[in-house]
Design a protein around this nucleic acid. Structure first.
Lengths: 341, 341
DNA sequence: CTGTTAGCGCGTTCAG
DNA sequence: CTGAACGCGCTAACAG
């Protein structure tokens, strides 16, 4: 593998001159530039990124960490899409992505700190999702450049998030507008930020319409179709009435649909159903299910841009900024009650 | 950030001694070892991975490249699972993953070569999927350590693949065993290796049962539900008869299901349907769809192990090896004809 | 415009 | 058992 010295020797110049040509310095005569170029081609010279990183004290690499549980069921393409978004801007701006998928939040935390302390990455994108979480504040203390995705940071930090509160609020209003009176809310684990955000939007809509918030109608469970189904069975057996379900995940919505079939309720007339994420399968059910579409790809794009902007212009780097991406309710048969009646 | 020199100064030893302690050298007195350890803790020393990489000429990093099209519709969690598998062994063996998602195969190719030539990674896992592909042979020429996943390498190289031929063969036999006579095969793009493998398995089963291979029954199209639906509509309008569909992707199978509803065929009695990938949604359709389950997570695990074994023991590194992972037919209602009749 | 010198932080001889 | 010296490949400050 050819080094800068080999090129220098062939071109008959010093290594630093070669370095300058690579850097595109303007204080180099066109003649030597040409000589150097030719020498580089002759030996197929490619700069060693590691040596460059050491000398420049940066890596042009961004770490993305993820704990597996945060990925919910992997049944939805959320993180795939986020990754695609991140990768597309990284590629364009000549950065690399170092990916780490951990089994739990402790591992994720350690991996993050390690990547930074070993100087393997210039910055991080993290997706920690629990309410009580010390990772963010630790990163702030370490003065690490980082962006949080999928939640608001709550600290002086950068974040890119979906408008979960508003999305949930809108979805609830949609159900009310369709004439549903009592809406059950199936949420994910209570300690997830996304859960509390969505519960908040749900409550907000009810309050705005001066409807009571019935605590029994809000159930919290692990993300899965089966859990969604069971949650509704429990509500029924406990005598909690509901004529619509707002599900904080498409899997729950599928469980709700099964519940409807199972109990002989017809959708949407007896039971309205809305899911979250708008996975492709939502269009293939009977009836097709209304769902909140999340802009995952864009989330990745925004997060990476925010981080790279900060890395490249530390002086302009804000200490706090929250980008909120809009989501959109994809209305399908499962909530079209008025149109049908 | 503390360096090895700082630690040396505090411990009252030379940098090389510190380096030896880190490396776990045995020719160091326990007393100095202890001194050095304490000094390291005092300044919270963490070795700089970049400097280490430069000195040792390795990065403990593996590149994984992927062109977006290869991810088919992103509707299935295939690559998420592969990544999880890769990540879990990388984590365990203290390696990192550099991820790159390209828009097309040209970009993927360039990214691969760049990662290697810039010495950013020690090896690669690539998922190039076209039949005519020069990437693999280029990597062989460059003497890059790499593993191909999701296809057989066809070159003196390492690869981890599903048993596509056999899986398709088994699926076809299953349909025949259920009494279906004429099986349509909806495949993906013809230039994908996975397509030709599955077509081969399909043909093999027919030949074994001494049934004719009817070319018109084999259609090739882009992966999507709509395309699957349209493909069958075309067959029907062309008068090509079939009483079962082997779909090379679950999306096609969903399209086939819609086709059945649309044309009033009942599944499985009038039409049998099998998909590939066994995405979660297959259990939620009516009727639930039979599908071939691919071991994606394990694919990632095997690929990473194969690569790391090679990197760590270049002497034992084989030049050619193909690991084939079994898949399993998940039989559901959509093909249970005999049990029902 | 270009060469020389001195690091970046660590690993690895080679002495002792 | 330990230290000094050098090199990994490149960048950057300083001369000229």
């Amino acid at each position: 593998m050819a080094t800068i010295k080999d090129v220098a020797k062939i071109a008959g110049v010093s290594p630093s001159t070669v370095s300058r040509v690579i850097a595109g310095s303007d204080r180099i005569s066109n003649r030597t530039k040409e000589k150097v170029r030719r020498a580089m081609e002759e030996v197929e010279y490619v700069p060693n990124a590691i040596a460059r990183s050491l000398a420049r004290a940066n890596t042009r690499t961004v770490g993305f960490t993820l704990s597996r549980r945060a990925d919910q069921a992997f049944s939805n393409p959320f993180f795939s899409e986020v990754l695609r978004g991140m990768s597309s801007v990284a590629q364009f701006r000549d950065y690399n992505i170092l990916l780490s998928i951990s089994m739990n939040e402790r591992e994720e935390r350690e991996k993050c700190l390690r990547l930074i302390r070993e100087r393997r990455v210039d910055g991080l994108i993290v997706s920690t999702s629990r309410v009580h979480d010390t990772l963010i504040s630790t990163l702030v203390e370490e003065e690490t450049p980082f962006v949080v995705i999928g939640r608001s940071a709550e600290h002086p930090a950068l974040s890119v998030n979906n408008d979960n509160v508003h999305a949930s609020y809108q979805a609830t209003l949609h159900l009310l507008d369709q004439g549903y009176q009592s809406i059950a809310f199936i949420s994910g684990p209570r300690d997830l930020v996304v859960t509390s955000d969505r519960v908040q939007g749900y409550k907000q809509a009810l309050l705005e319409r001066q409807l009571p918030v019935v605590p029994e109608r809000i159930v919290s469970t692990e993300f899965s179709e089966e859990e969604g189904f069971q949650a509704l069975c429990r509500l029924r057996s406990e005598g909690v009435a509901f004529d619509a379900v707002l599900a904080s995940d498409d899997l729950f919505a599928l469980g709700a649909l099964r519940f409807a079939h199972y109990t002989g309720l017809s959708v949407p007339s007896d039971l309205g159903i809305i899911g979250f994420n708008d996975t492709p399968m939502m269009t293939y059910t009977h009836p097709p299910l209304t769902s909140v579409r999340i802009l995952s790809y864009e989330l990745g794009v925004e997060a990476m841009q925010l981080l790279l902007d900060g890395l490249e212009h530390p002086e302009r780097m804000q200490t706090k900024k929250e980008v909120v991406l809009p989501s959109r309710l994809e209305v399908r048969e499962s909530t079209r009650r008025l149109a049908k009646s």
